[in-house]
């Protein structure tokens, strides 16, 4: 297990020291959300109504941008093959790397969301719910995204392909994230149900993601 924590710590350190990685995702998030009122018009009532959806979709896209980084650098310098042949099961290694992606990208994006909510005139009562659903839902983005990143590891210009593969898999997370927010802000009841299902989807991807990603990496590093 100590190998797992070492790998996680290494990945997080790399993310921080490399610089740019986290900042780019956050900057992209800010720019995409800013484009929305420019495209839809500055009507604050409209913006406040669609704010949860805009924030969630922009978050998906921003997280998507940083997915290739999960395995790319390690594959280029050969350390991925070392990890694959090491004592730590590859499933745990991919889990550590996906977890590092969640901590370094998912959590910052979720924490930035309320600030962007101000730009979209999101109701104040929705802020805690927004952050809670995003924190509960973003693990699914990282862990399912790791599968896509592993599948497109050796594909040249795989970024677009990655989006095509992974975005349909994010639909349940998106739907229940929005459902939980709209339930909490005066929609039909059922916040708890939506939130629990959202968490269940994240737990499900926590299991399936590392296994599938490890299988995909094993085929490619053999």
């Amino acid at each position: 297990m100590s190998a797992f924590w070492t790998l996680l710590k290494r990945d997080l350190l790399l993310q921080v020291r490399e610089g740019g990685a986290v900042g780019t995702a956050l900057g992209f998030y800010l720019v995409v959300v800013t484009m929305m009122p420019l495209g839809l018009g500055p009507d604050l009532n409209l913006l406040s109504r669609i704010a949860p959806g805009v924030l969630w979709i922009a978050l998906l896209l921003s997280a998507l941008l940083s997915l290739p980084r999960i395995f790319e650098a390690d594959d280029e310098d050969g350390s991925l093959e070392v990890i694959a042949t090491g004592d730590l099961p590859l499933e745990l290694a991919t889990a550590a790397k996906a977890l590092a992606h969640w901590i370094s990208t998912g959590i910052p994006l979720a924490l930035l969301a309320p600030v962007l909510g101000l730009l979209l005139n999101l109701e104040l009562s929705a802020y805690p719910v927004l952050v809670a659903t995003m924190l509960a839902g973003t693990p699914a983005i990282s862990f399912l995204g790791a599968v896509g990143a592993a599948l497109t590891l050796r594909v040249r210009r795989g970024g677009l392909l990655l989006a095509l593969l992974v975005l349909p898999l994010y639909i349940p997370t998106l739907i229940f994230g929005i459902a939980a927010i709209s339930a909490a802000t005066g929609g039909p009841s059922g916040f708890q149900a939506s939130f629990l299902i959202l968490s269940a989807i994240s737990l499900f991807s926590l299991v399936i993601g590392p296994v599938a990603a490890a299988a995909a990496i094993r085929f490619q590093t053999q």
Partner: peptide
Amino acid sequence: ILPIIKFSVDW
């Protein structure tokens, strides 16, 4: 994931 997608879209 297909059953989950189906379920979530119905919801």
